[in-house]
């Protein structure tokens, strides 16, 4: 039996480098998903607070589906379904083409739609917290609709939505662990491979859990820094 420290060493004997690479993949995936999820979530929230009924309906269907499905199932639907679907669509134009929707992109799409459906709810309640007078004030000083949104509503919206979004970020970070099931070499998959090969399951899954915990702590520190900064911006006004 090798000692614990050999197993956790850096290099070809140990597994620390592999797990560190996994941590990098996890962080990259979460960071790549965030802007996608935020953008879609914002657009869905716009649709859901629109005065147009059909837009609200379309937005509601979106959130109902992606908040109702288990994240793991969404991931499999994207990983197996989207690949076949896109492939067939592209083959219509170019029978030779192969489109690779790899597990990273699948993970990004699946986590992105799940994130966006929750984010849309956060944005929506933030929209509702902004009094109608703010819009009217914007129009009154002669701003266009887009300008009112950008200059008056959005800064307040971000401040109100920030705690909710921070929470979603922490959930996203944990949800990335699901991509290990579609073969992306994230923290948990690397830990799983190490556990299976070395038979030290408790050690490696424990290390994986601690890395997630560390990521959560770092995120919390980052988030409170952002919150302080946004608060300061507000105080300057």
């Amino acid at each position: 039996m090798q000692s614990v420290w050999t197993l956790l060493s850096w290099g070809s004997e140990g597994w620390l480098d592999d797990i560190a690479y996994g941590a990098l993949v996890t962080v990259c995936l979460a960071l790549a998903t965030l802007p996608v999820g935020l953008l879609i979530g914002f657009l869905i929230a716009l649709a859901k607070q629109s005065s147009e009924r059909s837009l609200r309906l379309a937005g509601d269907i979106y959130t109902t589906i992606f908040r109702g499905l288990p994240e793991l199932l969404t991931l499999f639907l994207v990983f197996f379904g989207a690949q076949i679907g896109i492939q067939q669509a592209v083959r219509l134009f170019n029978p030779e083409a192969t489109v690779e929707v790899n597990s990273f992109v699948s993970g990004m799409i699946a986590l992105g739609v799940v994130f966006s459906s929750y984010a849309s709810e956060v944005f929506l309640s933030a929209f509702r917290a902004i009094p109608q007078g703010q819009y009217e004030g914007g129009f009154a000083v002669g701003l266009s609709k887009a300008q009112t949104m950008r200059l008056v509503v959005l800064p307040q919206l971000i401040r109100i939505a920030l705690p909710g979004l921070a929470n979603l970020w922490l959930i996203l970070l944990k949800d990335t662990s699901l991509v290990s099931a579609i073969g992306l070499t994230d923290i948990l998959r690397q830990a799983g491979v190490a556990a299976r090969v070395t038979k030290h399951a408790f050690l490696f899954f424990g290390v994986a859990a601690l890395i997630y915990l560390a990521l959560a702590i770092v995120s919390s520190i980052g988030i409170s820094a952002i919150e302080r900064w946004v608060g300061k911006q507000e105080a300057h006004r």
Binding site: L178, A191, Y212
Partner: peptide, 21 residues
């Protein structure tokens, strides 16, 4: 903090395979 900060999947692995050892 521990149970909300780590993925459920990691916790399940820790209990099933970890306790198994």
């Amino acid at each position: 903090y521990f149970f909300r900060g780590t993925p459920l999947l990691a916790q399940a692995f820790l209990v099933y395979y970890g306790f198994g050892s």
